[in-house]
Amino acid sequence: MMGFRFFLFITRKPTLTPTEFMTHWDTKHVELLKNITGEDFPISHTRHYIARPTEQNGTWPAAVLIGGQEDFSYDGIAELVFENEQAFQTFYAKVSDPEAAAKIAADEETFIVREAMKAVVKADTSVSLRK
């Protein structure tokens, strides 16, 4: 595995549309993290969003191909990439500092369901190409 990577699974506040959620995460939250961590921000912070194209009775169902709505309680998946585990630990120390953590938590309260957040370390990746 090259570097240190992890995935975050994030659930949107139900009062926000998927577009409002995406806009906040992409423009405000990531900028806050960059300001707090500076040169210790990850090499990359890639966000993937679950398609929720049509509102139905105040909800935004996922565009599920296989499975059910209950399988997709999250709205976004982020992959954060660091040079190595030490670089991640440095980043984590900065975002865990009480003052920084309070700023991050306050922002997260505006657009995500914090208690639903999940994170997991990523292992290797295998890619198959058409040709």
Rank of each mutant, 00 (worst) to 15 (best):
T90E: 05
A101E: 06
D97V: 07
F91A: 00
E85Y: 13
E83P: 00
G76Y: 08
E70A: 15
F88R: 06
S96P: 03
E99D: 10
I66S: 13
E83K: 15
P98R: 07
F88G: 01
L80I: 08
E70Y: 10
Q69Y: 11
Y92N: 09
I66L: 14
A93Y: 00
A87R: 08
K94G: 03
F88W: 12
Y74P: 03
A87Y: 02
D97H: 12
D97L: 04
L80G: 01
T90Q: 05
G68Q: 15
D75K: 10
Y74G: 03
G76V: 10
G67A: 06
D75A: 13
Q86S: 14
P98Y: 10
K94W: 04
V81L: 13
T90R: 08
E99Q: 10
E70C: 08
I77D: 02
Q89F: 07
E85A: 11
E70V: 13
G67W: 03
D71Q: 09
E99R: 04
K94V: 04
A93Q: 12
I77M: 15
G68T: 15
E70L: 12
A78K: 03
F91M: 00
V95Y: 04
F91D: 00
F72K: 08
S73D: 12
A101D: 05
D71L: 12
E99W: 03
G76Q: 09
G68E: 13
T90Y: 00
D71F: 01
E70F: 04
E85L: 09
F88K: 04
G76P: 09
E79N: 07
E99G: 00
G67V: 04
E70R: 14
A102Y: 02
A78T: 15
D75G: 12
E85T: 11
E70M: 09
D97C: 03
D75E: 04
D97N: 13
K94H: 07
G67F: 05
L65T: 13
Y74T: 07
G76E: 11
V81A: 13
S73E: 12
E70I: 10
N84C: 11
Q69E: 15
V95W: 00
G67M: 01
S96T: 13
F72Q: 03
Q69R: 13
G68W: 02
F82H: 10
D71S: 14
N84H: 12
G67I: 06
D75W: 03
A78Q: 00
I66H: 10
A93C: 05
T90H: 03
N84T: 10
L80E: 07
Y92E: 07
A87L: 08
T90F: 01
F72N: 00
D71C: 11
A93V: 07
Q89V: 10
A87Q: 06
F91V: 00
A100P: 01
G76N: 11
E79P: 02
A100E: 01
A100N: 15
E85V: 12
F72P: 03
F88Y: 15
A78M: 05
G76L: 10
